[in-house]
Design a protein around this nucleic acid. Structure first.
Ligand SMILES: NC(=O)c1ccc[n+]([C@@H]2O[C@H](COP(=O)([O-])OP(=O)(O)OC[C@H]3O[C@@H](n4cnc5c(N)ncnc54)[C@H](O)[C@@H]3O)[C@@H](O)[C@H]2O)c1
Ligand SMILES: NC(=O)c1ccc[n+]([C@@H]2O[C@H](COP(=O)([O-])OP(=O)(O)OC[C@H]3O[C@@H](n4cnc5c(N)ncnc54)[C@H](O)[C@@H]3O)[C@@H](O)[C@H]2O)c1
Lengths: 219, 219
DNA sequence: CCATCTTTGTGCACGCGTTCACAAAGACAT
DNA sequence: ATGTCTTTGTGAACGCGTGCACAAAGATGG
């Protein structure tokens, strides 16, 4: 029986082994002391708990650059997600095949959701259309939404929204990048007061409109 | 002078107003008690702190479905990111214009990074090529990487990596979706022991290979 | 059957981010 | 000037996730 220890798994994942064991313990006690975890059984338990044993139909709304890329992506199917339909408002796109599947018009949205029992929707429309598309999805029965449009969606209770904002990802990188640059030598502009690292815990209180670099949160 | 209160901003962003004020306080004290924050000045301060006042050249490696979509995306430029180059290993793509910009071959990678002073790279290659592309980017001077390939990248200290895993986003939605479905009626399969919500804090300890549904972490 | 050795499961404590609550700062009216 | 009213800035408390450390479980060998 092939097994793995929490220590091995933790090292591979780059996390603490105690945390990993504690996480597993939420699924029940599937390990054997002195031996480790039965790999096959562990995989099954985690898959089931994560909902990976069932197939989730999803619809993608907005088949533009991003939507088409998503439709072509094979990585979803292997994780238990099946693209049930591609939906776009552009009449010129209707019927056109994308990723071997005809694009359907927004008019069909409600019917598609209903017929396929779709509960997960992906929004890849322009920001301006996102909220109204969201509203229609929710009204039709979708209760989980993955939103790529740079808008904060308003949804009723019971509906989950996850937002993927790629610009923010880049901004986070740029933010740290900027801090890296600022650390090696403070001789850049006519700003900066502190030497290196500001007291992360203390609450600085510098006043006013001057070209100073305020102390910021820790890395 | 147009102003906003922390209360208004917090409501709009859906966060706690005290937290928002405390966050702002890290930038210094730019608010006026009894009035609020000067909008224009606040925007400037935050922009500067986030590195949005400068222009960041980025390269995209792997101009397939996703890479092309990213290249065509206009939302980056408006946030201060300029696509300096599109790089792909496929010789057939070299010179081909994508988003009004010729795709360059991977051979040029080091030169492009160096010439443009690129410090941020985006990886949109297949998973198998991601690590070696990453290594080349880092060796050429890139210190921040946005990775779309479903691989854990290994990088030296001082290099930041952010991974965007869209499958995981869907899995998280599916996970909650599954829990929603299980709540309304436990009469589904021949499993489930607890009535509704398991004691989130307690550490359940159920043993063994039976078709039971283990207690899981709180939502 | 007992000793030893490995690895789990978890109580406990630490640290950090979040939230509460309020004193003080300042605007504005009188 | 003085008082009132709004809103900031932040000390203090709370809650939660993380990591340490160890007892108990169980395998394995003698
Ligand atoms: N392309 C990217 O890499 C990228 C990156 C980050 C964010 N985004 C965001 O993703 C969204 C889509 O980006 P894109 O580049 O694919 O844009 P796009 O313009 O290429 O595609 C948008 C598609 O949505 C369709 N559409 C418009 N209104 C609609 C509606 N009401 N109902 C259904 N479909 C509708 C359009 O017909 C078009 O096909 C945008 O909000 C964008 O900001 C894109
Ligand atoms: N398309 C999506 O919506 C999507 C979603 C999630 C994740 N991803 C991930 O993003 C990556 C790209 O996806 P895709 O759909 O665009 O794939 P794709 O096959 O369409 O494109 C991959 C591109 O990378 C190029 N490439 C291959 N090896 C390279 C190398 N060593 N150096 C430079 N370029 C190289 C190929 O020539 C190709 O143009 C994959 O890892 C995929 O798993 C894609």
């Amino acid at each position: 029986m092939p097994t793995v220890s929490s220590e091995e798994l933790a090292a591979a994942a780059g996390v603490n082994s105690a945390k990993l064991r504690k996480d597993f313990s939420y699924l029940g006690s599937y390990g054997t002391r002195g031996v480790g975890y039965d790999v096959e059984y562990l995989v099954y338990q985690i898959s089931r708990e994560l909902g990976l044993t069932q197939d989730w139909p999803v619809v993608i709304v907005g088949i533009g650059n991003l939507g088409a890329a998503l439709a072509n992506y094979g990585g979803f199917a292997s994780r238990g997600f099946r693209v049930a339909a591609l939906i776009d408002a552009d009449p010129a796109m209707a019927g056109k095949p994308v990723a071997g599947m005809p694009v359907q018009h927004t008019d069909e949205l409600e019917k598609i959701i209903s017929d396929n029992g779709v509960s997960i929707g992906v929004i890849a429309t322009p920001a301006g259309a996102a909220q109204q598309v969201c509203d229609r999805l929710v009204a039709a029965g979708v209760t989980s939404i993955l939103n790529f449009a740079p808008t904060v969606l308003t949804v009723p209770d019971g509906v989950d929204v996850r937002k993927v904002d790629l610009s923010i990802e880049l901004q986070i990188l740029a933010f740290h990048e900027q801090r890296k640059a600022g650390e090696e030598s403070s001789a850049d502009s006519a700003d900066d007061a502190e030497g290196t690292a500001p007291p992360a815990a203390a609450k600085p209180h510098r006043k006013g409109p001057d070209g100073d670099v305020p102390a910021v949160m820790p890395a």
